[in-house]
Amino acid sequence: MWAHYLPRLVLYVAIGSVLVGLDVGLPRLLNAYLVQILVFVACNIVLATSLNLINGIAGQFSIGHAGFMAIGAYATAWLSTTHGQRLLAPYEGQRLEPLLIVAYLVVLMFLGGLAAALGGLLIGLPSLRLRGDYLAIATLGFGEIIRVLLLNLEPVGGATGLRGIPQYSSLFLVLVAAVVTVAALHNLGNSVHGRSLLAIREDETAAEALGIDCAHYKTSAFVIGAFFAGVAGCLYAHYTQFIHPRSFDFMKSIELVLIVVLGGGNLRSVILAAVAITLLPEGLRLVKGALHLPFDPRMAIYSALLIAAMLVRRERVLQAVLPGRKGGGLRE
């Protein structure tokens, strides 16, 4: 019995000690700029892997993921600026404070996740009737509705954005969240639940015939995916200290779809793609600095690299986008 769990226990302990090591070591090795980039990388890993559950595994093409992130970010940031800071104020400077902040943030992550999951439920329901392009447009509309609502919602800053959010999240917490998310989604993908989603992606009618409750599973994919996006939003807001609806626009959703497509629906590749897509624009700042060009070639190089990557990975990409197309042959 114990022997069965031992390797897994060792793995958990190893991951835990690596994270603690990173927590102690990283701030000494890296400056605030590199730490911030790593935070964004981890946030994008959470976002991309959760979108992968909806797009890659369940095959429900969603291009409104930034909307879920926005719900999580705004809900928790509003809670922190109105109540959270006051709640934690008496403990300021005390030895308990760091622990309390972590506990508070964990609670907040759940709340942000739940708020976003509610949004996922809202968009999951129409997805029962829509497929493919139609569903994509519905999710796009949902993402835009969220953005426009936030733009006009004065209590959360409206078009000015919400500022003065306390910086409760840290690289360590974001990395832990990323590891937990990836572990959860990995296990989910290998469970009965995940297999059912895969079956739905491959052929909904056949899945239904096998006794899979398609409506239930499709909605659950949206709810779970949205939950993690909300968690990422919470961590993002509590790191940057300022959020604006423009950060959660259509282009953010597209960036996440891009990561999933580039990753070809495979969890490990999606993580790699998230790392690459987040690091590239920052890394390319250096190219600009070294070349001394009269214009900024950053976005041109970025786009060219994306096109090249898509060309090389076309097979995988097609598999992710067109369910059922495996091994290159067109399904008749």
């Binding site: 590199l34 990753g263 495979n266 790392v275 920052e282 890394g283 690299l305």
Partner: peptide, 24 residues
């Protein structure tokens, strides 16, 4: 299949590490 992504990551990480050096 992971090769391309790894390469892409490599470009990003490499550039960042270079950027981590004390400026131009």
């Amino acid at each position: 299949r992971s090769g391309v992504l790894t390469a892409l990551c490599g470009v990003g990480v490499g550039a960042l590490l270079l950027a981590g050096c004390p400026g131009p």
